[in-house]
Structure formats: structure tokens, C-alpha cells
Amino acid sequence: MTDQAKRALIHMLGVTKVYGKGEAEVRALAGIDLRVDEGEMIAIMGQSGSGKSTCMNIVGCLDAPTSGTYLFRNVNVGELDNNQRALLRRHYIGFVFQGFNLLARTSAQENVELPLVYRRVPAAQRREKAKAALQLVGLAGRESHKPNELSGGQQQRVAIARALASDPSLLLADEPTGNLDSARSAEVMELLVQLNRERGITVMVITHEPEMAEFCQRTVEFRDGRILSDTRKPS
């Protein structure tokens, strides 16, 4: 293997995803070839129904492709069962969702600790890591706040801290700014850019807003289950 291949984090080859059978069959992905290297910051764009969410589910190891090969860290995800995919997510992927998906009535600190609980990190270390992650997203001093005591932007920061806490190789953000106003959106995107630059975390943002894609070096556009364009900003 060449040096280049080693650095590939995501490698999709002719990936398809088909839902349903017979007449109700829906081809959500119709053959995707995509390679994302470590340290990239990439935006996945497309209208609803374009297949970008399906692509995200496969990239995030939440779902397996119908055909084709998906290599994540050179592991063929299509050959893994539910459990093994869960372990892959646990150790290498951090998720940020449009709806924040924080546990209600649970403090920011405990929300951030959650993935560490599944990674069997001892309690003391868990507390420290969560605190550091919250500090990184600019929420130091809000550890004991519950989600309903935080603004939308702050909640999304907690979610990002949660994704960061386990030091993932890939941070997967599904419409992270969908529920935020433009000022908060810009802040969240800037935070992601900062994390990508300073910590070298590979970031993949799924969005339908071109302004958000602007923050990324690379933009891949989906249409009808295929990649329409793949553009890199000149650096």
C-alpha cells in the first residue's frame, strides 16, 4: 500500500443502497465513489432525496451498503455485523445531529461523558475529559447546566463536545446548523473549522446550505443518488 492509501479514512467504491423490494424499490445511492483523507474538512451537499443522508448513514457505519465496498480506516464495513459497527462508531466516530439529541434533564457534563461510559473510561478520567471537551467548545463553567437551560447554539456546542470527548478520527455532522440562526450557525461552523485545523480531526458536514459549505475546503454535491460534483477550494 502506498502512503496515500494509508491516509485514506473513507473509501467508497461503487457503493449502492437500495431500500424496499420490487416496485417499491428505492435506489438511494446509485454507485458512489468517494475518498476522504485524514484531516480533510468536507461538505456533503444536496437536496432532500439526493442520497446525502443515506451516504452519511453509511459513512457513519450506522448502515451497511447494499453493494460495493466501503472501507473505513481500511476496514470493510460491509462485512461487519451490527455489533462490530457499533464498536467502530464508539471508538472512531463522533456524531453531531441537527436536533442536538442531548439527553433531557441531564447535565452538559453527563451528556459529554456518555460516549466515554460506553468506552469504559474510568469515572475520574471521564470527568476530566468531558470538562476539557466542554472548555474546548467554550462552555467552561456550564458543566452542570441541563439542555433546557442552554440556548440552541450552546446545546449544539455540548453535542460537539460530546462528539469530541472520545477523540474520534471522524466527526460527522448532520445538518449541524439546521436549527440555528445564521449568527449561531457561523459560530458552530467556525468551531468545526477550528477543530479540524488545530486537532486534525476529519470533519464531514452534511448540509443543504451553500453558506455552510463555504466553510469547508471540499464540497461534494449529490443528486439522485450520484455525485454531481466534487470541488476543492484552492488553498
Binding site: G60, L62, A86, R89, I93, L114
Partner: peptide, 16 residues
Amino acid sequence: TREIGTRLAIGATGKE
């Protein structure tokens, strides 16, 4: 359900 989904996405196995 959403909470369970979040936990699964974060890396909880079905068994957990």
C-alpha cells in the same frame, strides 16, 4: 426512542 437512537449512534451496542 430518540435517546436510544443517540446512544446507539454514539457507540452503544444492542446488548448494552
